[in-house]
Design a protein around this nucleic acid. Structure first.
Lengths: 130, 130
DNA sequence: ATTTAAATTGTTATAATATAACACCATGTA
DNA sequence: TACATGGTGTTATATTATAACAATTTAAAT
C-alpha cells in the first residue's frame, strides 16, 4: 500500500482533478482547470505534481508529458510503472501484471546490475481502434 | 539490420554529432553545435531528429528529452527500446538483452493484447556511482 | 529531357512544457 | 523561544517543440 501522506490543499485539489479525469492530464490543462480554485501559476501546479509523483499517487506518462492517477494498490508501484498507449485514440491504461512486474524487478543487465526503478510504455492499437 | 536510408545533409550532420557524442544530446545543444554548419533554426534540428528516430538511427530518451545513437544491430530496435539510466551521473546506455526483448515482444496484457512497440527505461546507480 | 510527386529545406513566429529566485507562512519539535 | 522543514504565492525566464508558408531538391515516370 501507499504510505499515507496527508495532502496539502493544492496537492489535494490537483490530485482530485487527475483522479476524476478519464484520461491523463497535462500540466497546463490542469492549471486551467484549477484557476477557479485559486491556483494561478504553473509552478504551483508543477510543485504539486512533483510531490504527487514522488509519493506515488500519480504517475507521469513520459512520452506524453501527462499525468495519471495510480489505481494500483500493490507496493512500490511508483517505482515500477507500465502503461499501454493506443497510438490512435491515445487511450492510456496502467498495466497491472504480476508476472511483468516480477520479471522487470528481477531483471539484471549484462553487468549484473539490478535497477531500483523502471518505466515501461507499450504502444499499439486498443480494441476499439483495431 | 536497419533498412539503409541515404541521409540528407542535415540528417547526416546531426546524426554524426549524436553518434560521436559520449552521452545523449538535447535538441538545443545539438542546435548550438551545428550552427557553424549552417543549421540555424530549431525546426531544422527537430525535423532531422524526427526522421532519424523514425528510421531507427537514433532513439529518444523520453524521461530526459535527449537523443542517443542506436548501436544495436538487431532488427526492429527502433520499435523496441530499453535503456539504463544512472540517477546520479546520468550515464545512459542502451540495453541489449535477447531475453528481455523476447519477453516484452511477446507480452500480452489481460485482454490478450499484444503491442507493436515499447520503450523501457530502467533507473538506478551505475557501477561508479555506487 | 520534362514533368510531376514527394521529401526536404529555410524562415519567422509562436506554442507548450518546465524551472529559477525570492519573500513569506505554517507546522512541528527540541 | 528558536529553528528546521516544507509549503505557498509571485514574477520572470528557461527549455522544449510545433505551425505555417514559400522555395528548393530529389527521384522516378513519362
Amino acid at each position: 500500500m501507499h504510505k499515507e501522506h496527508t495532502l496539502t490543499k493544492n496537492q489535494q485539489i490537483i490530485f482530485d482533478l487527475i483522479d476524476k479525469s478519464p484520461e491523463p492530464m497535462k500540466a497546463y490543462s490542469i492549471l486551467f482547470s484549477v484557476q477557479k480554485k485559486g491556483i494561478k501559476a504553473p509552478l504551483q501546479v508543477y510543485r504539486a505534481l512533483d510531490k504527487l509523483v514522488e509519493i506515488g499517487k500519480i504517475h507521469k506518462i513520459e512520452s506524453r508529458n501527462a499525468f495519471i492517477a495510480c489505481h494500483n494498490s500493490s507496493c512500490q508501484v511508483s517505482k515500477a510503472t507500465a502503461f499501454s498507449i493506443c497510438e490512435i485514440c491515445e487511450k492510456i491504461t496502467e498495466i497491472s501484471s504480476a508476472s511483468l512486474s516480477k520479471y522487470l524487478a528481477n531483471f539484471k543487465d549484462k553487468d549484473g546490475m539490478k535497477y531500483s526503478k523502471y518505466n515501461l510504455e507499450f504502444f499499439g492499437l486498443c480494441k476499439k481502434c483495431r
